[in-house]
Amino acid sequence: MQTVAAAVTMVRDDAFFLKAWLRHYGRLFGRENCYIINHGRGPEVAELAQGCNVIGIPGDPHPNFDMKRWRLLNGQVNGLRSYYRHVIVGDVDELVVLDPAEGNLLDFLAQQPMRRVLTPVGLEVIHRPELEALGAEDSILGPRRHLRLAPHYSKPCVVSLGTKIARGGHFTQASKLFTPEGLYLFHLKYCDFPQYVAAMDRRNRVTEEVGVGVKQAAIGRHWFGEARGEDRALFEAFAEVPIEEGFDFSRVRRRMHRSWKPRGETGYWQFDRPDVQKQYLLPERFFGLF
């Protein structure tokens, strides 16, 4: 049984994203090294996650949902570090990916020094409905090959150091930044238009059940209907994002390091996360990873 890496997430009803998460980490690490917190004890989540370590918790709506969620995830990560060299933690629609040109993610992590937090470059997998068919149920990369640069999703999510992760997973209290070449975080929120609509409908229902506004809740603003906008217009706008030649993010990593600094007096560290409008074509060597 391997003890190099484990993956941890929390999920509620998001079967489409959970299937991709399981295809990716289950295949790489083995399901016995995947830890899934089943928020609300959904039977579909339990069924899909057979062979994984599933922890069922109550799903009652709460205005401090994100604070409670990351308190639990921090505890899981710090506990599992006693048994694994590295623990990957994040939302179910976020997958840490190693460029296949650099090898296998598990082998890569086995060679990484410990007592670090690794920060992949964030890229959003986007669906271009005018170019790509609807539906990506069995495989996402390949049917989807357009990526948008997403500094907000360059998250410090590969942990082998005792540290605290901030709500949302965007910052940690680790004072050194490590951004290995070829390591990415693929955010899947926009990877399929029908799945996006369905997921946003579910999130809007959750915030309606909570019964408070954005300012009164510790829940991401994007979960609220008032911040949603028009779904189809959002996806149509992807066509306007300029396409960059190649697939080289060395300048992005250098900018992250140049802007690295304490996040005020919070104890957390950060780099600048500019709103950069750039789109890339995914090289074929990534196709079929999940």
Score class of each variant (00 low, 15 high):
M10A: 15
D14E: 15
F16H: 12
F17L: 12
L22A: 07
Y25S: 04
G26Y: 09
N33V: 11
N33Q: 03
I36S: 05
I37W: 09
H39L: 01
P43L: 11
V54F: 01
I55E: 02
D60G: 02
P61K: 08
P61C: 01
H62I: 02
H62N: 12
D66L: 02
M67G: 10
W70F: 13
L72Q: 14
N74H: 07
Q76R: 10
N78L: 15
Y84M: 05
H86K: 13
V96R: 09
P100S: 02
N104S: 07
L106R: 13
A110C: 06
T119C: 12
T119P: 05
L123W: 08
V125Q: 06
H127Q: 11
H127N: 10
R128P: 01
E130N: 11
A136H: 00
S139A: 09
I140K: 10
L141N: 09
G142W: 08
P143S: 08
P143Y: 11
H146N: 13
L149P: 09
H152I: 15
T163H: 08
R167T: 15
T172R: 13
A174M: 05
K176S: 14
K176T: 15
L177V: 11
F178C: 11
G182I: 09
L183Y: 01
L183T: 04
F186S: 08
K189Q: 10
P194I: 04
P194T: 05
A198W: 05
M200T: 03
R202N: 11
V206C: 02
E208Y: 03
G211R: 09
Q216V: 10
Q216L: 13
I219W: 06
G220K: 13
R221V: 14
E226Y: 00
D231P: 04
F235T: 04
F235Y: 06
F235V: 04
F235H: 03
E236N: 07
E236V: 01
E245I: 03
D248R: 15
S250F: 00
S250L: 03
V252C: 13
R254M: 09
K261H: 14
G264M: 13
G264A: 12
T266L: 03
Y268R: 07
R273D: 01
Y280F: 15
L282C: 05
F286M: 03
G288I: 06
L289D: 11
F290R: 07
F290Y: 12
